[in-house]
Design a protein around this nucleic acid. Structure first.
Lengths: 151, 151
DNA sequence: AAGTAAATGTTATATTATAACATAATTGAT
DNA sequence: ATCAATTATGTTATAATATAACATTTACTT
């Protein structure tokens, strides 16, 4: 899954997108936040907060849990990463301009995560919910299984 | 949401179902497991593991985290409860014989959870996944929002 | 009754995340 | 440029969630 030809390019694009969006929004992608985003993007797999912390410590030994969680919070808030609830893990967002209607395919073998967006699925969920007068706010859809390459 | 007329009846039915299914499967719904299941069913809302632990301690002061988690594991394994991944919480399953294709509507106001099943949603997810040769194994679909009564 | 498997008890610790307060950097108004 | 305010980061401590490892008890099988 996600056999990207050139992962450095993926990462750089993600970083560039984040920069642009921050600029547009008037928020700051500080050095720390950028570093954390880069670390999240070290692969197309998911990363765990305390693994990020270990990675950060290699750069700045004084890093502590809040260092990581604050950056993660910022990155989540602005849609540069997503949290995978079923794994307590984080993954970079490949299309941070439109982070609606997303769901995640999680390969149990290679740990890679593919983010998909489907207005279709989103509409069905929304319609079904509204039929019973439930007003949906946030949809968490995570599908674990085995990806093409691993099966 | 879930304005059940008689929650005692809900609970008793859940307990009865669990008993029957255990009998059929040849597994044991021990006193402890039954107690935990009853505690999970104290409402239609979700419960947190350490709240259950507090509840259990009122009955048996020697209860400890593994006491709760082991029972939860058993109840999860046999489909008597579900884990709500986005909340790290647990909720009773209202129809434990057929716990496929389920998703959860979580009201942010009243904390109640309604479990729904839709072969429709499940099929769409499955088809969409398979189109890209992803073999789905487990689908986590959790929708938080506001229920009819709370909106 | 003895042996085995399953369940529970118990201690300790791992993992994930946040609260609370201190300091530093940045911004914006004067 | 300076001060005040805001934002970001540093730091210490601890809360919240979950499991590992081993001991004991209970239940089941023969």
């Amino acid at each position: 899954m996600n056999p990207c030809k050139n992962h450095k390019a993926c990462t750089n694009e993600a970083l560039k997108n984040a920069e642009e969006i921050c600029k547009k929004k008037g928020v700051k992608l500080t050095k720390l936040r950028e570093t954390v985003l880069r670390l999240v993007w070290k692969s197309h797999g998911y990363v765990k907060a305390y693994d990020l912390l270990e990675d950060l410590k290699k750069i700045d030994n004084s890093a502590k849990p809040p260092t990581v969680y604050r950056s993660l919070d910022f990155l989540l808030e602005h849609g540069f990463i997503h949290k995978i609830q079923s794994l307590n893990a984080y993954v970079g967002c490949g299309h941070p301009n439109t982070h609606d209607n997303c769901y995640f395919l999680i390969c149990n073998e290679c740990q890679n995560i593919e983010e998909h967006c489907s207005k279709n699925i989103n509409d069905i969920v929304t319609n079904t919910s509204e039929k019973i007068n439930f007003l949906p706010n946030k949809i968490t859809l995570e599908i674990s299984g085995t990806c093409k390459e691993c099966s």
